[in-house]
């Protein structure tokens, strides 16, 4: 089957130094792939190349078999959404307006009521519905990240009516989140993957990355060190070699945390 996302000899040089160096990668539809590696390994750069934000110095990226070079920004926005590490906003937008940005452009073909519905759903999924009428600028870092998660969820939902093959890129989506919301965002991303959306994320937390992902991509100094299921990638030898740490237990713990169901009986909606 044709991979949803493919990189061939992907290289990005800046100032004579290769930040991403000759990476070959094929990611199947609906897989949850997490890019890990120490600081400066080129994780975010790889993500920015894969989503089309940066143009590679050498090699290319293909989405659904088609080269990114031949896909315009407008069509690409229907096929993938990108959640940034941090986006500052200097104007007094309400949270609901920030989320609406995800559907205002590519959702133009939908009715106003449909767009409003998508925004409401996205606010719910990211657990920011109660913040909808707040000013974005008054939110904490973690709340802001959840708002952007809602925005990309809304964008994907708006693009779905046009493009069935979709990719979600998450650049350290949970860096400022508390543990409960980290799990919630990961769960939502997994649910999207379950629904056929290909998910590519950069995560710092190795344990969370290991438990959440279908595949890990391990980078060091811009090069691909290993890829595959977590237990194959994060071996004792590699953890020592790449990260300089030793695992204190014989095996990688899976699922270190689980969200506690709400008292009401139904699973807690975060």
């Amino acid at each position: 089957m044709m991979p949803a996302l493919e990189a061939r000899d992907l290289t990005y040089e800046l100032g004579g130094r290769a930040l991403v160096d000759g990476i070959d990668l094929a990611i199947g539809k609906g897989r949850f792939t997490v890019i890990v590696g120490p600081n400066g390994a080129g994780k975010s750069t790889l993500l920015r190349l894969l989503c089309g934000e940066l143009a590679p110095t050498r090699g290319e990226v293909a989405v659904g078999g088609q080269s990114l070079r031949r896909i315009g920004a407008w069509r690409l926005a229907h096929m993938r959404a990108v959640m940034p590490q941090a986006a500052e906003l200097n104007f007094p937008f309400l949270v609901s307006e920030v989320v609406s940005l995800g559907v205002d452009g590519i959702g133009r073909g939908l009715t106003r009521a449909d767009r409003a519905g998508l925004v409401r759903q996205a606010l719910d999924r990211a657990d920011v519905a109660h913040l909808a009428a707040r000013y974005y600028q008054t939110l904490s870092g973690g709340e802001r990240q959840r708002v952007h998660f809602a925005r990309v969820v809304a964008q994907l939902a708006a693009g779905r009516s046009v493009e069935s093959q979709q990719i979600l890129f998450l650049d350290e989506p949970i860096a400022s989140l508390d543990l409960r919301h980290q799990l919630a965002v990961i769960e939502e991303a997994k649910a999207l993957a379950g629904a056929g959306v290909t998910v590519v994320a950069v995560l710092h937390d190795l344990l969370l990355a290991a438990s959440a992902s279908d595949d890990l991509v391990l980078l060091r100094a811009g090069r691909l060190v290993a890829r595959g299921p977590a237990e194959d990638v994060l071996t004792h030898a590699r953890l020592a070699e790449v990260f300089g740490v030793a695992l204190t237990s014989p095996v990688l713990p899976t699922q270190p945390w689980a969200a506690i169901p709400a008292a009401g009986g139904s699973a807690q909606r975060l």
Partner: peptide, 15 residues
């Protein structure tokens, strides 16, 4: 509107 999030974000939104 999209640009107020940043240039990269505006590009991601299809602008």
């Amino acid at each position: 509107n999209a640009l107020s999030l940043g240039e990269a974000e505006a590009f991601h939104l299809g602008l």
